[in-house]
Design a protein around this nucleic acid. Structure first.
Length: 639
RNA sequence: GCCCACGUAGCUCAGUCGGUAGAGCAUUUGCAUGGUAAGCAAAAGGUCACCAGUUCGAUUCUGGUCGUGGGCUCCA
């Protein structure tokens, strides 16, 4: 029986392939008219994975299409293409590594010339030439020593270093025209299909990511099988720019940072502070409802405390230098936990007192390298929506479930529905009894399962002091952000010798769970801004309705409506400036207010309002009563 | 911290191949009292990030400092 089978491709063409072939989809468009060239490339042996057998030898077979891996192969080939172009233009270039990444590819290059943006255009042009040359991409296997000889001959020092780290045996090279690169593959068959490429940026990157090594030049790029898909991606990048919380933060007058006072420190303007206050009040209310108590603790603590907690040992590089008070060193807090533990220790706890759920909007300060600071997303001073749960072994399962449920509810209420849960387990060199780790990990797993989420494993990804669940939430344009963390701590209870008295009258070590649901208020607000592109749901929006008068005669009426709304605990803003109505509407709309209300002669006479909802071009006139009812439905009932 | 780019009015930006700068918006003041995305006019506003150097002369060139932006795990 032949080892070849015929398959019908999504474009209806028929091809013969070896049994067990996996077809990679470079387009993400399986079933929607996949390009012949894209498939032909890997069928002919280059990107063949025999691990997925085809289940029958009939003429028409079901073939595995792997879009993720397909994209990966495609981008990796694009990376080789770029390297070839760079080598042609800059013969002294030495290549380090050039993988595909989540969103495209890069190559790290060592060369004399510092690349400038114009060089990217030139490299792109050269890449197009190579595409037009339609070079076959061929796999060559050889012994490691032959490969070493080859790369020594062409003086590719980084490849030599990589080869030296590989085990004895055969390695593979991929050759296209005059260019060959050490690579495991697979690759596409011909440069021909890599025609829609775009180089995006130049950056510095250390050889092997180690800051002690030489800094190389990294070129980032992206590639698609057709121009349309590339354009779509470029539009996505535009959208990302438009939603940038730093830009919107300025436009909506939410916050600022001040270089002269210090980077990574956030100043909340009235609008931003309003927004933050809305979130915090809601957060507190919901915490009380969900069985938490709320604490306030200081911002500094004596060195002694941080020695006990161990932070001066394992966290010092993130802490600010101490200040001396009465010949004692005090440190500004990078975490709230030790303070909560001090409160725990002010009294003896019986198992009957547990669980204790203590929450605090705790402002902490951590040193971050200047280069990593980024708007609200990475700052040096921030407020965690922190809580610590102290409980007995019998309680942890329910407690963890409850935290996860609360968190998921919170995300849903805030408008985030696509959430993934990662279970990070015991790493090397951890502290705490193995049995406690087991119990804790099991409770975390059960919690994820009971929330009907898939358990994404992050093996060995836990902190040295305990396993955790991280929640990643997807925003409106598909980006994932790590937000909630639910974290066991086997370190602090030991270090502080925490205990409770059990039913047996003996001392027992409580379980301690550290959790932050939003993560930090700063970071969360940054993501909230980008998620909604500044168009916050009305219950969150700092200003919910902007009230505009047509002429001076309506000022009194507008102010009356304002007090009505304030009585309803709404957040109106009155704009009675002596400007044209059109001007004020334009400004109100650009401020993304959920409701723009205009009051003229007619409205005053009829006790009505002309309302323009955000996103709608036309206004609707309604009686005030009706409008208040609408607000009640849209705002009051949601918070 | 490191690599690259950038730093001009409150904001967004133009400009000066070396002769101390300009627009729009915002602001202020007049006029205009206007019905759903910018009414008209005038004024005011800058040590061209900071510090050195070269030069008769530096916002422009050179070096440094500070700051901002893109990056710095993702293994050939």
């Amino acid at each position: 029986m032949s080892n070849m089978i015929k398959v019908i491709l999504p474009d209806k063409s028929v091809r013969e392939v070896e049994k067990g072939t996996t077809l990679y989809d470079f387009t993400g468009q399986i079933g929607k008219g996949l390009q012949k060239a894209a498939l032909a490339a890997e069928i002919n042996g280059i990107a063949v994975d025999l691990s997925t057998p085809v289940n029958s030898d009939s003429e028409i077979n079901i073939i595995t299409f792997d879009s993720e891996k397909g994209k990966n192969i495609f981008w990796h080939s694009a990376s080789h293409l770029m390297a070839q172009a760079v080598k042609r233009l800059f013969p002294d270039a030495k290549f380090a590594i050039g993988p595909a990444i989540d969103n495209g590819f890069y190559y790290d290059i060592d060369m004399k010339k510092s690349l400038v943006p114009e060089d990217l255009t030139a490299i792109e042009a050269e890449m197009i030439k190579i595409v037009e040359e339609k070079l076959d991409i061929k796999r060559e296997e050889m012994s490691r020593s032959d490969a070493l000889n080859y790369f020594t001959k062409i003086n590719e020092v980084y490849k030599i270093e990589l080869l030296n780290d590989l085990p004895e045996g055969n390695v593979s090279l991929y050759r296209q025209g005059e260019f060959a690169d050490l690579c495991r593959g697979p690759h596409v068959m011909n440069t021909e299909i890599l025609k829609s490429v775009k180089l995006l940026s130049i950056a510095g990157a250390y050889w092997r990511g180690d800051e002690k090594n030489k800094m190389l030049q990294r070129i980032y790029g992206i590639a698609f099988t057709d121009q349309k898909a590339l354009n779509k991606h470029l539009e996505f990048l535009e959208e990302v720019k438009k939603r940038d919380h730093r830009k919107l933060g300025k436009e909506l007058d939410l916050f600022s940072t001040h270089e002269d006072v210090g980077g990574g420190l956030v100043y909340w303007h009235p609008n931003g502070a309003r927004l933050r206050n809305v979130l915090e009040e809601w957060w507190r209310k919901e915490h009380f409802k969900n069985g938490y108590d709320i604490l306030y603790t200081p911002h500094i603590g004596r060195a002694h405390l941080w020695e006990t907690s161990g932070h001066l040992g394992f966290y010092k590089q993130n802490m600010y230098s101490p200040m001396e008070i009465d010949e004692q060193d005090y440190y500004i807090k990078p975490m709230n936990c030790p303070f909560h533990i001090k409160i725990y220790q002010t009294s003896l706890h019986s198992y009957r007192d547990l669980p204790l759920r203590w929450a605090e909007l705790g402002t902490v300060y951590r040193y971050e390298k200047s280069g990593v600071l980024h708007g609200l997303l990475r700052v040096r001073g921030f407020t965690q929506d922190d809580a610590h749960i102290f409980c007995t072994p019998e309680q942890i399962e329910d407690e963890v479930k409850e935290v996860l449920r609360f968190s998921l509810w919170m995300w849903k209420t805030l408008g985030f529905t696509d959430i993934k849960a990662y279970l990070a387990t015991k790493p090397e060199g951890s502290v705490g009894e193995a049995s406690r780790w087991e119990t804790a990990q099991e409770s975390l797993r059960k919690a994820i399962e009971s929330a009907n989420l898939k358990v994404e494993m992050d093996e060995g990804g836990g902190a040295f002091y305990g396993p955790k669940i991280d929640l990643k939430v997807r925003d409106a344009i598909g980006r994932e952000w790590q937000m909630t963390t639910i974290q066991f701590d086997f370190n602090m209870p030991e270090r502080f010798d925490m205990y409770y008295v059990g039913e047996d009258g003996q001392k027992h070590r409580p379980y301690m769970v550290h959790r932050a649901l939003l993560g930090s208020i700063e970071r969360f607000v940054g993501i909230l801004v980008e998620h909604y592109a500044g168009r916050f749901p009305a219950w969150i929006a700092p200003v919910q309705a902007i009230l505009i008068n047509v002429s001076e005669e309506q000022v009194e009426f507008v102010n009356r409506v304002k007090s009505d709304m304030i009585d309803m605990e709404l957040r109106p803003h009155v704009d009675i400036r002596n400007e044209s109505m059109g001007y004020k509407i334009r400004e109100a709309v650009s401020q993304k207010a959920p409701y723009v209300c205009v009051f003229g002669k007619n409205e005053v006479e009829n006790g009505s309002v002309s309302v323009r909802k955000r996103g709608e071009k036309d206004s609707v006139t309604m009686k005030l009563d009706e409008f208040y009812k609408l607000l009640k439905e849209d705002i009051v009932n949601k918070r």
